[in-house]
Design a binder for these strands. Structure first.
Lengths: 335, 335
DNA sequence: GTGAAAGCGCTAACAC
DNA sequence: GTGTTAGCGCTTTCAC
């Protein structure tokens, strides 16, 4: 690796003149600049990031923590964010936390060590531990979910999609389509996102005076296989079911699989609405109705907030609220 | 941010003693160590990466370049690699290149600036330009594909899956299942991976004395929509087709969509084999037969090679060869 | 056992 | 318009 001093030696100029030539800042004669750049090129010079960021306290990188890279739900979010960040010469560093708190804490520690200038933090479960760790970093962090334990002087930005409302919309849609026995397939209610979503389901049932049947709620792990198994146990319980909402598309696909296996007619025998509106929702037959959480916009907004903090030095926190959207497809058509 | 000097001041010890306490290296009295660590904790001290890596010429990060995060093909590869790297305290930094050469060059430039200690480089198209850029970095890079233009003194590691053989297996499978008019849906043949795969198709046809019909080859862009459109144009050409191989699962799903739309009986009217064997292959009905390229193992091997270079200082290059595998499912069952 | 000091490569303030 | 210098926070060698 060559450095500024080598270029200085070879070109016969001082290191600071070399620096001027390379950075474009400060006064410099055109001929010397050219001469220096020529030497730099010959040496295949590239600035060393570590030195630069030690000096400037900037890394030009953004940490993007996602729970799971295998879930297409995050693709568009990543895309939306990355595109905007790139425009401001910020690189996106993807880190995946495997849905695991201790991994999340490691990533926050990375921010603390200044692996990046800021973080977009996606988690299903903001809790006291991870939020406290984020507080300690004292760095720009955008949360992509609500967290109810915020303190008075907390200064986080966040982009919030109303999961509860999304679930309300899904449930209402099935009710209006004529369903009376609507099952809910959801994750661990200790996780905040699952909890919020479940609340939307309860609220909709209440509004339409439908009695909640606890046996119609099954728990699964947000995977296709999990959805398949959970739906099987539900069916084997021999309950009357005419609609089901799954808390993500992958589980929805698991449900579809089993319907095919058992020759159930989707939309006639049972209507399905899922969550996330990813590519997967359009892969199966019939295609799944799904709640669109508008991830690309979440990503864009998160990036925007971060850019404001880092580049424009905004001090006050901002909260952005995004409305979910119901996308109706064949899996829940009225006969 | 606190640093070693602050801790030194507050604890009453010199910076170098503080460093000893924090690193665990060198002689230090147990009581002073404890005292120093206490202060460090009180100040919420974390070492600054930039300073560390400037000094040590190590970042403990690995750059992982992938063409497309939206393609589940890479998931398992990332998983396989990350798990191994994590065990050696190397963090994986995902960078996606959007299938774009200039983006790839940017990522290589990042390596040059020592954003990471090494790189796992996935590309559909290793060409003189990107390979030359990699050469110039003089850093450990593992290529996950073959590149024919290697020079005598090149010292790259690579993990190589035989795409040609995979395609040969797919084609042979359809032939043995009774297909006579096998279409091929593939990407731009200027891209090396597409080209290799196409060769496997030609070779299999040749071996079984089936005349190659150029009209049966369609080009698509490795997306579901692209597959759908390409297959449509193929059908509208009113050719006799009893089998089709798609160069990835997403295009395969596009084909399945159209089959459903036109009420074609998959496996009876037309047999389908796709490539990659991702989750998507098991999402549709009937499930797709697919060539498994064993991505998780690719990732693991790539990580292993990199670790050997970085930690064990291996100097000589290594090449690892992985055999593809055919996974037969309902889309290509013999009647 | 502890302290002092140099240097990784860059930037920016200041001197000439 | 160019050169000198100090310092970012850490590690490591040498001195005591």
């Amino acid at each position: 690796m060559s450095n500024i001093y080598e270029i200085a030696k070879l070109s016969g100029y001082s290191p600071s003149t070399v620096a001027r030539a390379l950075s474009g800042n400060g006064y410099i004669k055109d001929t010397t600049k050219k001469a220096i750049l020529k030497v730099a090129k010959a040496l295949n010079y590239t600035p060393t990031l570590a030195a630069k960021s030690l000096r400037n306290n900037r890394t030009d990188k953004i940490l993007f923590c996602i729970p799971d890279i295998c879930n297409p739900f995050y693709f568009n979010m990543i895309k939306g964010a990355t595109e905007l960040l790139t425009k401001h010469d910020l690189f996106t560093m993807l880190l995946y936390t495997k849905h695991d708190l201790s991994e999340e804490l490691k990533m926050i520690e990375l921010l603390n060590q200044r692996y990046g200038d800021g973080m977009i933090y996606v988690s299903f479960n903001f809790c006291d531990q991870n939020i406290e760790a984020v507080r300690k970093t004292n760095m720009p962090v955008v949360l992509t979910n609500k967290y109810d334990g915020l303190k008075e002087d907390d200064n986080f930005d966040y982009v919030y999609v109303d999961h509860k409302k999304g679930m309300f919309m899904a449930t209402e849609h099935l009710i209006k389509a004529g369903c009376q026995h609507i099952a809910l397939m959801i994750g661990d209610l200790k996780e905040q996102t699952s909890k919020e979503r479940a609340e939307g389901y309860f609220e909709a049932l209440k509004k339409y005076n439908i009695n909640m049947n606890k046996d119609l709620i099954v728990y699964a792990d947000y995977t296709k296989e999990g959805g398949y198994r959970a739906f099987k146990s539900l069916l084997d319980y021999s309950l009357e079911i005419d609609g089901i909402i799954t808390a993500n598309d992958l589980m929805g696909i698991g449900v579809v699989s089993l319907c095919h296996e058992r020759s159930m007619n989707i939309s006639k025998d049972i209507k399905i609405v899922s969550f996330d509106n990813t590519d997967y929702a359009r892969c199966v037959h019939p295609r799944l109705s799904s709640i669109d959480l508008r991830e690309e916009e979440i990503g864009e907004h998160a990036a925007k907030l971060l850019i404001e903090r880092i580049i424009k030095k905004r001090k006050k926190s901002k909260k952005i609220y995004i409305e979910p959207r119901l996308v109706v497809r064949e899996s829940s058509h009225r006969e």
